[in-house]
């Protein structure tokens, strides 16, 4: 099974930090995700948006990393949203009940604007 190294780029848009996830989200992605989270929240954003548009395979360890981000976001009361998930991974976010805490939008504009509202679980 080939894997794609995980990268996470941070950019700002309208006061919202967008973390663009690239490559596979597994145990090897931990440091990239941690660094991205620190960069995204050093200056407090209105919300953090996770972009899965260019992410690939996500395993259960990758989901655990997302839970870690959610925990940090909740601790600091920063809304967290996501977009770019395939139907399959949308379902995984439902099964793992991450979707209870994270608004999943269809595109970046909706995610940045938070059109679907934020989740409190």
């Amino acid at each position: 099974m080939t894997t794609r190294e995980a990268l996470a780029h941070v950019r700002r848009r309208d006061g919202v930090a967008v973390i663009e996830l690239i490559g596979d989200l597994n145990a090897a992605a931990e440091s990239a995700l941690d660094e991205a989270w620190t960069a995204a929240t050093t200056v407090r954003p209105d919300a953090v948006v996770l972009s899965f548009e260019n992410s690939g395979y996500i395993n259960s360890t990758g989901i655990a990393l997302v839970v870690g981000l959610l925990a940090s976001a909740r601790a600091h009361r920063i809304p967290i949203r996501a977009y770019g998930l395939t139907d399959h991974y949308r379902e995984i976010f439902e099964i793992t009940r991450l979707a209870d805490f994270m608004a999943i939008e269809n595109d970046e504009d909706s995610a940045v604007q938070g059109v679907g509202g934020d989740r409190n679980g």
């Binding site: 099974m1 080939t2 794609r4 596979d24 548009e53 992410s55 690939g56 395979y57 996500i58 395993n59 977009y83 770019g84 998930l85 395939t86 139907d87 399959h88 991974y89 379902e91 995984i92 099964i95 269809n106 595109d107």
Partner: peptide, 18 residues
């Protein structure tokens, strides 16, 4: 838009594992 069909093949390879 969210174009699930444009995703790399990697995204679908683990479907049976979940």
């Amino acid at each position: 838009t969210n174009s699930s069909n444009d995703k790399p093949a990697a995204a679908g390879r683990d479907e049976a594992n979940w």
